[in-house]
Design a protein around this nucleic acid. Structure first.
Length: 270
DNA sequence: AAAGACACCTGTCCGC
DNA sequence: TGCGGACAGGTGTCTT
C-alpha cells in the first residue's frame, strides 16, 4: 500500500465528497482490523465532516464532535461510491453521507485501522511521537544530519523510521536513495551534511512527483475514483532486481535490511 | 535509548 | 492443475 503519496492522493480524492457533508450512517461489516473498530465510531452518525487532513500516513476526518483516525495499512484503499453499491469481499467499512454517497474502505490484509477520538487527534498516542513531514520546510539536511549522529542503523532504515521522518516507505526510500546516489547500506551516523542535503532534496522531489502521478500501483492499489496510480512507470530501482540501471546499465541489486527488501544500483549509489 | 525480531492477515506468484 | 513456500507498499510491541 500506501506510502505518503498514495495517502495524500486519497485525501485529495475524497475531500470534495466529504467536507461539509452530514454523516448519515456508519456500516461496519468487519470489525477486526489492526485494532477492533471501537463502538464509539458510531458517534460519528449525524455529525458533519469539517475537514479531511493527512498527518503522516494517517487520514483524519474531523467532525463537529470528534475525529476519525484512519490508516490504510499495507493493502487498504478508500473509494467514493454510491451507498447502494453492493460491497465486495474485503469492503469492511462504509461511512454513508446524506448525499447518498459513501466512503468505502477496502483492506484485504486488514492491517489498516479506523479509530475515533473526542480529543485533539494530534495528541493521540499513535500520532504524538511522529517525526517531521518530509514535505514540510522543517525537514532539512541539517535536521537529518543532527539527529543521525551516533546512529549506527543503515540510512535506508533511518529514513523509514517514522520517529525521524514520516511517510517514506519502502518504495520511495529506495527511489530517493537512488536519486541521491547514496547506498542504502551506508551508516546513518556517518553521512555528511552535503549528502543529506542531496537526500532531502531527493525525498521531496520523489514524493511530490509521485503525488502528481497519483501514487504507485503495484498490486491493485486504486485511487478514489478506482483508477491506478502511475508512478511505477518511473521507478528506477524498486522491484527491478536483476534489471539494468536506467543510468549506467549495471544490474540492480536486491538486499534485505530490517526484514524489508531494498533495491539499489551498486555503481550509481555509493 | 537504539536496534532487531516478531506479530498481525490475505492474496499472488513461482517452482516443482 | 495443485500445492508449498516466499513475498508484498506498515508499524506497534516486545526483547536484547
Amino acid at each position: 500500500m500506501p506510502e505518503l503519496p498514495e495517502v495524500e492522493t486519497t485525501c485529495r480524492g475524497i475531500a470534495p465528497y466529504v467536507e461539509g457533508q452530514q454523516v448519515h450512517s456508519v456500516i461496519v461489516r468487519q470489525a477486526k482490523l489492526r485494532w477492533p473498530i471501537p463502538l464509539s465510531l458510531y458517534e460519528l452518525e449525524g455529525k458533519k465532516i469539517l475537514s479531511v487532513t493527512r498527518c503522516a500516513k494517517y487520514i483524519l476526518l474531523q467532525s463537529t464532535h470528534g475525529c476519525v483516525i484512519l490508516h490504510l495499512g499495507m493493502s487498504g484503499s478508500l473509494r467514493i461510491i454510491d451507498a447502494s453499491l453492493a460491497p465486495e469481499k474485503h469492503d469492511h467499512i462504509d461511512i454513508v453521507f446524506s448525499t447518498g454517497k459513501a466512503i468505502r474502505l477496502r483492506d484485504p490484509r486488514r492491517f489498516g485501522a479506523v479509530l475515533w477520538t473526542q480529543d485533539n487527534p494530534l495528541e493521540h498516542k499513535l500520532l504524538s511521537k511522529l517525526g517531521l513531514d518530509p514535505l514540510s520546510d522543517a525537514f532539512t539536511a541539517k535536521f537529518l544530519y543532527k539527529i543521525s549522529r551516533k546512529r549506527r542503523v543503515s540510512v535506508k532504515q533511518f529514513i523509514m523510521n517514522a520517529q525521524v521522518v514520516v511517510g517514506v516507505g519502502n518504495i520511495y526510500a529506495s527511489e530517493s536513495l537512488f536519486m541521491a546516489g547514496i547506498s542504502p547500506k551506508r551508516v546513518a551516523g556517518n553521512i555528511s551534511l552535503a549528502r543529506y542535503q542531496k537526500l532531502v532534496d531527493s525525498i521531496k522531489i520523489v514524493l511530490a512527483s509521485a503525488i502528481e502521478q497519483g501514487g504507485t500501483t503495484l498490486r491493485g492499489f486504486i485511487q478514489v475514483e478506482g483508477k491506478p496510480g502511475y508512478f511505477q512507470q518511473q521507478l528506477n530501482v524498486y522491484a527491478r532486481a536483476g534489471e539494468k540501471c536506467n543510468t549506467c546499465n549495471t544490474l540492480i541489486k536486491k538486499i534485505t535490511q530490517g526484514q524489508r527488501s531494498s533495491f539499489y544500483c551498486p555503481l550509481c549509489q555509493k
